[in-house]
């Protein structure tokens, strides 16, 4: 071997090299290390836009609780709530169809019929079940019910699916979002058992289906639609939820307002600040992802 030009270090194991085993090549060590590959810095307004889904969901829960307390205190006529629910359903259904207008009309008519059939089924089922629901947990003390409902609503808020969906048709729900919906419906069932009349129970159950089963589906579609509509809807829902809470208790109102404000406007700032600590380390040691056609 030429003394003047020693063989350069190469990254192989099969060759005996004129370097000690603990030699670390200064330039070549960790060359293939990648830090934060394809990192996308967050932008504030996009995060706010995304956090609106959470705000809307929390507003729905506040809304629901406010309605429940009014029903319980007999400040709200259950029949009015039924009318409101039906109205909301029709409005939501109309919006859904407007968003879905790309679909061919023949399929749409069939879908209308199916939706009509299942909503009538739902309506009747809830109506016939409401006496059962009213007495379902009559033997349980109210304190347990409040605690249970609180836990279920927290579970609902944590597990809900806040991502936007591009097109309608097949929305493949993940297990968590199904769990989330079930938690909310269970919470409303246990709460409904604290009400006095069957009509009230029916109204609340109907409202809960609107709020926790149907609205999240619509919300996911709306998220990809016009930004103005989305922001207006968020503001409207947050404002009306806070307004409904305000007449119940000042403290609860301020708490709710703060939470909505924090989640929509302050939490994104914290996330952007925290992103500077993001440190993804990638290298040849990572388990490769096989690409199969």
């Amino acid at each position: 071997m030429n003394e003047a030009r020693p063989e350069p270090w190469s990254r192989v194991l099969w060759k005996t090299q004129p370097f000690s085993d603990n030699h670390i090549p200064p330039k070549l060590f960790l060359v293939s290390l990648q830090r934060n590959p394809n990192l996308e810095p967050y932008s504030y307004w996009r995060l706010v836009h995304a956090s609106c889904a959470v705000t809307q969901h929390l507003s729905t829960i506040y809304f629901f609780l406010a309605v429940f307390i009014r029903l319980k205190e007999n400040q709200l006529d259950p029949r009015t709530l039924v009318y409101i629910s039906v109205g909301c359903f029709l409005a939501g259904y109309f919006t859904w169809n407007v968003l879905d207008s790309a679909e061919p009309s023949s399929e749409r008519n069939a879908n209308h019929l199916k939706a009509l059939k299942s909503s009538i089924m739902m309506f009747l089922a809830l109506m016939s079940l409401s006496p059962v629901l009213r007495t379902l947990s009559a033997a349980t003390s109210s304190d347990s019910i409040w605690a249970l409902a609180a836990i279920l609503f927290i579970l609902n808020a944590l597990l809900a699916n806040y991502t936007a969906s591009k097109s309608g048709g097949q929305i493949r729900d993940r297990l968590t979002s199904v769990l989330s919906m079930n938690a909310a419906v269970s919470a409303s069932v246990v709460l409904a058992s604290r009400l006095c009349t069957d009509v009230a129970v029916f109204a609340l159950a109907l409202f809960s289906v609107q709020a926790f089963a149907l609205f999240p589906m619509l919300r996911q579609r709306l998220q990809t639609s016009l930004v103005a509509v989305w922001l207006f809807l968020t503001m409207f829902m947050a404002a009306s939820a806070v307004y409904l809470l305000a007449s119940l208790s000042q403290i609860v109102m301020w708490l709710g307002l703060f939470m909505l404000f924090f989640i929509t406007l302050i939490a994104p700032i914290i996330l952007i600040w925290a992103q500077r600590y993001k440190n993804i380390i990638r290298g040849p040691w990572d388990v490769a992802v096989p690409k199969v056609n």
């Binding site: 060590f29 960790l30 040691w285």
Partner: peptide
């Protein structure tokens, strides 16, 4: 046992 292994272990 390998150079890749060393980089990984060092990190």
């Amino acid at each position: 046992v390998s150079h890749t292994g060393r980089e990984n272990t060092v990190l």
